[in-house]
Design a protein around this nucleic acid. Sequence first.
DNA 1: TAGTGGTCTAGACCACGAA
DNA 2: TCGTGGTCTAGACCACTAC
Lengths: 234, 234
Amino acid sequence: MQVPKYKEISNFIISKINSGTWAENEKLPSENDLAELLDSSRMTVRKSLEQLVADGLLYRRPSVGTFVAPKKVQSSFLEIRNIADEIKERGHQHSSLVLSKVLMKPTDKLLELLKLDTYVDVVRVVILHQEDGKPFQLEERYVNAELVPDFFNQDFTQITCNEYLSTQLPVTSAEIAIEAITPPKILKHQLGMNDGDPCLKLTRITTSGSNTVSFANLYHSGNAFKLTGKLVSV
Amino acid sequence: MQVPKYKEISNFIISKINSGTWAENEKLPSENDLAELLDSSRMTVRKSLEQLVADGLLYRRPSVGTFVAPKKVQSSFLEIRNIADEIKERGHQHSSLVLSKVLMKPTDKLLELLKLDTYVDVVRVVILHQEDGKPFQLEERYVNAELVPDFFNQDFTQITCNEYLSTQLPVTSAEIAIEAITPPKILKHQLGMNDGDPCLKLTRITTSGSNTVSFANLYHSGNAFKLTGKLVSV
DNA sequence: TAGTGGTCTAGACCACGAA
DNA sequence: TCGTGGTCTAGACCACTAC
């Protein structure tokens, strides 16, 4: 089986939502109706619906029906996720603009953050990630060029930084800081934000073994973005 | 049906893990075996297993088996920390003001968030945490009064909500959401923020077993607050 | 009362990994 | 080859909501 039927059903529902055929808070056909409509069994339809509920695209009210959830973009901070995958999972289109890519000598601050003891080169990239053509995240990243020599030559409209880095070196740990900031003018413009909109800033330092591979600042418009995570004690 | 069979199965498996009967990376009985053992159908067992995999307690390898997941190192911002300890660790003085404490009937939204199926009472507290006398965090918390009957009578200038709750019930999981918001006027005043200052909002839902104990909104002045954490891959 | 989602069952076939 | 998880089916009963 190439693609499971329940995923086809999910895609069908996602496309209905994205195209606006099924609007926010609109009631979906019942499970039985969907099963008949899609020539499937109720249990298979349920599997798809349960997944979409877990993803936050739908919500259900017992004895009443299944509804299209109002939009709220979410992202998991627990995983080092590929932003492109994340956006695709939401059924949207991901695209990137490489605003800048330079090879540079590290500043003192970078020396400290990347835990460099010698003056190796550093690659700095600035990438604007877009979801369906709308600015979603601004990524400012510094990478130790010695550890990842071919980083500079990558086409980051085709592969995300994280994706490429993870093919080169295994990420063993990451330090993350999250804060709310008042965006500088440039950022406001790049992310298409309005005056007074808050901004969520994520700083991430990834290490592989004892080496610090990369330092990244990720900026999101606070109005349209929420980070979520789940802790399970074991 | 009071408690669904698949939840009983989950609890059975969780107890086996917690007691150490099934150690890390140990293989569980197959789905068919579990079904027979627990006098259930394979589909019901699967529902339970899928949930535990999603919770990170188990992992599966197709054609091989289901295994107990190794314990994950949690990042510090994910820990359910005691804000008083946190402030003391920084060498500062913690104090609290209880702005409000009421026993109330839950709204529909609370019913959903606390996963209440009946109209039990809910305690709502609003507490301003101060660091060296300066506003630091505003905590708005709702607690299921049935699960924690004596919650209302606590003196939250002497013990934090989390501290007290953890003495009453073990926290088994928590869901966290983080967003940057523009603070409403009241909040701005309470946290001593200036115009245009961004605000970091943390929403935390804590559960104990299958019960949702508490729902809390935690607000911080973005200017003076940063969440940090470390992720360690396992 | 009719329709909904929530749960459960007892089968089935498949691809894949291990022996 | 055999056991595993992954998928799928066609039923069933229930509690609850809306009418």
